[in-house]
Amino acid sequence: MLNEFKKLKEEYPDRILIASIMEEYNKDAWEELIERVEETGVDAFEVNFSCPHGMPERKMGAAVGQDCALLEEVCGWINAKATIPVWAKMTPNITDITQPARVALRSGCEGVAAINTIMSVMGINLDTLRPEPCVEGYSTPGGYSSKAVHPIALGKVMNIAKMMKSEFNIDEYSLSGIGGVETGGDAAEFILLGANSVQVCTGVMMHGYGLVKKLCSELKDFMRKHNFSSIEEFRGLSLPYFTTHTDLVRRQKEAIQQRKAIKQGLQSDKDWTGDGFVKETESMVSN
């Protein structure tokens, strides 16, 4: 992989190359990995604190991202050693994803990426009674990805974006959205929720690298439709429209009252006249 990084930078010196790295809970191992990868000329690191396939018994991947104290320590090692920007990749397999995101940013990371795959069991073979996928009769929970996780990823990115906007100088940090991106519309949704960039993995695995051109073309179509000339014009544009359940109830109640006032229909049963039955009935329908 190190040779591939070098070759890519030689062939495309004007392009940004980000290396996604993961290591066990060992300071010396992390420092050696960072040093060796930096020598290839990569422009930044995405540190994988989120992979459910990272061996938890060795404190790798999601095992670190789910433990804020451990995450803070490892981020400290990495940011003290790295001379290029560092992004931390977040795991969705946690109750509140803003907690590790906050720790990563406060520990020196310049951005966060979300989400990685969701811990799951694919199924059980009802003939053999063994879990699937099966390796010599055994399995282990793995990561669920693709379009099925897209709504979950949007929710996690929204939570992180709102946290970053309220607690950090949003212009100094970045957020990368990941999860079920297969169309330009999928990418636009992440950007509307505050993402600076969007990543694609399973989509390319399923449809090939040609998907990227299609995705970019569809994203440009979306921008033309709304007369956006740059990503920044619509980044985070949908965030203000998220509120609380209590506020939604209040807003709906006020809207119903306004519609009833406009209809000038019945406000209660005592106003029933019997004339204009259809209009009077419609005036009492709340929604």
Rank of each mutant, 00 (worst) to 15 (best):
S146W: 13
Q257R: 10
L17H: 01
D28Q: 10
P85R: 04
Q267N: 04
I34V: 15
D127L: 11
A29M: 08
I231R: 07
E10F: 02
V278W: 04
R235N: 04
N79Q: 10
N48C: 07
G194H: 00
T117A: 13
C216R: 13
C51H: 10
T98D: 12
W77T: 09
S238A: 15
A104I: 09
W30F: 12
K253A: 15
R106N: 14
D221E: 10
E39H: 08
G177Y: 14
K263A: 15
G203I: 01
A63I: 01
E232P: 00
G274I: 09
A113N: 03
T95P: 00
G180N: 08
R259I: 03
Y12P: 01
K214T: 13
L70M: 15
V103E: 00
M60L: 10
L266G: 03
Y138A: 06
E218S: 03
V121T: 10
D247V: 01
W30S: 04
G184W: 02
K59W: 10
S20F: 00
P85F: 05
I21Q: 12
F45H: 06
P151R: 06
M205F: 07
G123N: 12
P92M: 13
S238N: 08
R102N: 15
S197C: 14
V37R: 09
E282P: 00
I170S: 12
H226W: 09
D127V: 13
L248K: 07
V121Y: 09
C51E: 10
I160R: 08
L175V: 13
M60C: 15
F277M: 11
E282K: 13
L193T: 06
G41K: 10
C109W: 01
F49C: 14
L70R: 14
D271K: 01
V42N: 02
V200A: 07
P56T: 07
T244R: 06
G65I: 11
K165W: 00
K9G: 11
E233N: 07
G184E: 13
L266H: 03
P131C: 11
K214L: 04
T140N: 09
Y25C: 06
Q199Y: 08
S166K: 08
R251T: 03
P240N: 00
D171Q: 14
Q199G: 15
E23L: 05
K9C: 12
E132A: 03
E280F: 01
V121L: 13
C75G: 09
C51P: 09
A62Y: 15
Y241I: 02
E11A: 12
L2K: 06
Q264G: 14
V121E: 03
L154W: 05
H226N: 11
S20E: 04
Y138D: 02
I97Q: 03
K89A: 00
V157L: 14
G142C: 06
N3E: 15
E23I: 01
E136V: 00
S238L: 14
T281V: 14
Y138S: 05
W87K: 01
T273N: 07
S120P: 00
A188N: 02
P131L: 11
I124A: 03
Y25G: 00
Q258I: 07
V103C: 02
V121I: 15
G265D: 05
K220D: 00
G194F: 02
I152S: 07
K9S: 09
M122H: 05
M164W: 04
E254Q: 13
S146V: 07
T117G: 07
K162A: 10
T98N: 11
V212C: 02
G265V: 06
E10W: 01
I256L: 07
A62G: 12
I256C: 08
